[in-house]
Design a protein around this nucleic acid. Structure first.
Lengths: 345, 345
DNA sequence: AGTTAGCACTCACGGATAACGAGTGCTAAC
DNA sequence: GTTAGCACTCGTTATCCGTGAGTGCTAACT
């Protein structure tokens, strides 16, 4: 039994219709709606074949057919045609996404908001992973007798700081020395290199006062570094789920929202995705993702280097063509926003 | 018609029962359950009176009575007895809330998580308002040819920073001068004072290079200051709503979650609340809060100075006594965590 | 041989009806 | 003032049944 042209046309029609209506569709209705020059009976036979091949299912005996995950996959890979975003929409996105380079995080958050607004799905965005980011310098500044600020600056311009109380008195001079020493030791190393290095664990100096100071500061130094490594997850449009008929059921909605609330799981899932525009459908997803959800993600780049992720999550029944285009376009815009105007770093 | 002792006892019994079961309760069931020495008929009469006075309602003619918001108010003010948290629970809270002074934000977030876990409601916490916080110093540090880090440190130890790209070349010396000038101008002023001052808008120097530098930096200086003023809202247990029968209805749950997603509104509502442990019931709340929700909040202090808020939101039917105690205790623990061990600042 | 008409069958959905039970208010007796 | 008795209300649940969109199968048609 082969997947001839007619079968593909029928499959496409079913998916097309189902994506819009959300209702199972039967042979008779399909032939009326799409006028494909063959009788319902013929369609019925083809449908039965498509089902046998795993591209369709039906919720119960006397209902119409709906696409299976495998059906969607075929559609996304071969049947779906590229959707060109209307110029108007492009302009809206572009205008809402202008910002300057400094507002990296706000821009990413804004992009997530935009994405959920346009797609009516739940969107998310990950800030870039900083694994490869290299330390520039470390600075410890006095605040008052018992408080100092530890500040770590990376090549990328990312800054992380903590105010910390210390239990021993300090002199500004000692702070300066410690800052210099730390900078000297770690400048040019990546964050993860520093974190796994031994030196950091047994940082020693021969000056008594200094070593006491270091004792106070080093644990926080590590924490602050770890903070720099963490990616942040932004989300928007969580409640959009309620406007989707399939999830208009208390249990489904609950499960969906509970899935979203497990930010760690979600972050991990997203971090592990491949680069580029990736679509995963239903059970292709990892276990953390609800069974009948699909994920569309893309990677954006900062200054050509660092990468973050952005995308949407929704029911397997979604307008893959349109949504892919939106995600693609937003990513494109992000890339150009985060591109350095001149030269390289 | 007066609110005699017997009426109060009946009201208390009704509220007590309703808080537990969530079902309207009738005269017969009440008399059986509580064995108060009077017949259902008598209870019925008293109930009718209580309803006339506005403390009870019934959802429909042939249903039992349920407390009205006014009824809950009476209960909370006069009938409710203090609930003593079991020692075990106290220990759990205490042990989970230990942390050092530096981890202010994490601790607050943790407290919110704890609150939702124990109460099975949605909890939230506001970071301290920084209005009265006073600037300590401003530092501008070089990163690379086109990037500097602007860093503002407040008396409280709070630090805010932004990495910013500037369009003109700079010398480290100029940065240092600008830092010093800014610090000199604004040290000792509160953030809001600085933000509303004129100086900031037309910062001028006679040195050409400096003024160009300042032009680049000042707008970001203001933004960074504004960031320092913003309070952050943490939330936890949003999906707990699904386990509450009254909200086990798609529309209700949706409205609740949509209310929570309007963070700005929520933050405003919380910021505007009075100090101390405050309970507001149903329509006593501002419009942003769903009609049949109650709010219990408390203020925690950092180092003795008044500041942040923490609390829970749930259906008007909640265990006011227990939950108030939990909120109170968590607040207490936060206070002692955030108390400086010695002396004053 | 592929296509189609016809037909018996399936099954979710919606409306109608009825029994049930927890409740009420009222009246009259205690 | 309290209580027993009673008629009445009304949401809940179960049952039944007609409807209609669907199916698979078979036999006739091109």
């Amino acid at each position: 039994m082969d997947l001839n042209e007619r079968k593909l046309r029928i499959l496409q029609a079913i998916i097309h219709d189902f994506i819009i209506t959300g209702e199972p569709i039967g042979s008779r209705t399909l032939s009326k709606k799409f006028d494909m020059g063959i009788s319902p009976a013929t369609i019925r036979n083809e449908m039965a074949d498509l089902e046998e091949m795993g591209f369709l299912t039906h919720p119960h005996t006397s209902a119409g057919r709906i696409p299976s995950d495998k059906g969607y996959r075929l559609y996304v890979n071969h049947l779906m045609q590229k959707y060109e975003l209307p110029e108007k929409e492009k302009q809206i996105i572009a205008s809402k996404l202008t910002s300057d380079f400094n507002e990296l995080e706000q821009t990413i958050e804004k992009a997530a908001g935009l994405l959920s607004e346009i797609t009516n799905l739940t969107s998310f965005a990950l800030t870039p992973q900083q694994d490869e980011d290299v330390l520039k310098y470390i600075n410890i500044l006095p605040v008052d007798e018992r408080t100092v600020v530890l500040m770590i600056v990376a090549e990328s311009g990312k800054v992380s700081n903590t105010a910390l109380r210390i239990s021993v008195p300090y002199s500004e001079e000692n702070l300066a020395i410690l800052s210099k020493t730390l900078t000297y030791n770690y400048r040019g190393k990546t964050i993860s290199q520093v974190l796994t290095s031994d030196i950091i664990k047994n940082f020693e100096t021969d000056i008594e006062a200094m070593s006491r100071l270091a004792e106070n500061i080093m644990p926080n130094f590590m924490k602050t570094l770890e903070n720099m490594l963490n990616v942040d997850l932004y989300m928007a449009g969580q409640t959009n789920i309620f406007s989707i008929p399939e999830f208009n059921d208390i249990d489904k909605a609950k499960m969906f929202l509970e899935m979203l609330s497990k930010k760690d799981d979600l972050t991990r899932t997203l971090v592990n995705r491949d680069d580029g525009v990736i679509i995963t459908i239903g059970d292709e997803n990892s276990e953390e993702i609800l069974p009948d959800c699909s994920l569309i993600t893309a990677t954006y780049h900062i200054d050509g280097k660092l990468v973050g992720k952005i995308g949407v999550i929704g029911p397997t029944r979604m307008k893959y063509d349109e949504i892919t285009s939106v995600v693609e376009f937003v990513t494109e815009k992000l890339n150009s926003t985060f591109k350095l105007p001149e030269g390289k770093e």
